[in-house]
Amino acid sequence: MTALGPAASLRDAYGAALVELGERDPGLVVLDADLSGSTRTQLFGQRFPDRFFNVGVMEPTMMSIAAGLSLGGRTVFASTFAVFAAGQAYNFVRQSVCYNRANVKIVATHGGLLVGGDGGTHQMVEDIGLMRGLPGMTVVVPSDAATTRAATFALAERNGPAYVRLTRESLPTVTDGSFRIGRAAELRSGNDLTVVAVGALVARGLELADDLARLGISVRVLDAASVKPFDEAAILKAARETGAILVLEEHSVLTGVGALVAAVTAEGHPVPVRRIGVPDLFGESGDPWALLDRFGMSMQRIRDEAWDLLRLRGRVE
């Protein structure tokens, strides 16, 4: 089995991609709200100071300004932390950006519990649900730096609103960067069980698959980075061919990808689905990776749920 690739920063990949996009498209504009060092839009700002607007601590208005800048035909990127992009600015994203069908790409960093020390106020675990509920919004949750880079380019080429959720922590490389909007990437093939994962938990899904492979159990692993449009065909195919789905996400199970997979399978091909993610709780301060364990996303928990599903399916005793 292939080992995971070296850890790389999703934020660095985004910043570097922005600079390249800026070279290609002289009209492209980038905005930030006083977090440009953390989001890495600073790299674009240093290279193209005239096309970079650090508007200060005003995330809602940043979205409106971004929309206004885009309505004449520009591609606009706007970045801040996920809690401010999807939370603080929600109705501005809804009306200024989505209702206008504005060509604004919101790239939010610091999604999920992996924010760590800042605590529950800053650990945004509801953003995927909020953003995928918006008509016309494209939502991407990259699992590594390679997908971040590919998604940044793909979204720049596609007209319309988009939300990308990045993680503060560096993540192991799990994909070959062949991300496509609307397509789930099959990272492992298998027929006994399917893991659908996004973001930081894709690596844990691969670890599970590799562990079980040693026991002769084959687990299909789908990286569902394209949360919207969602690859329903891949999900239904997995439901038909493997009969059970385990969903892993560093997001509230109430409104995240697990809820989406449950809905898609319930309507299209009902099979047992288990959602592993953040329960109905706010996060708290702590070591980022310890928080995943604390909130129910440990490898042990993932293994236990997988065994349960395999037993249900009669794949193991």
Partner: peptide, 13 residues
């Protein structure tokens, strides 16, 4: 401060 389980969250709770 900021440790798992602490009353002293990164931002006061």
């Amino acid at each position: 401060l900021r440790r798992l389980g602490s009353r002293l969250q990164g931002h006061a709770d």
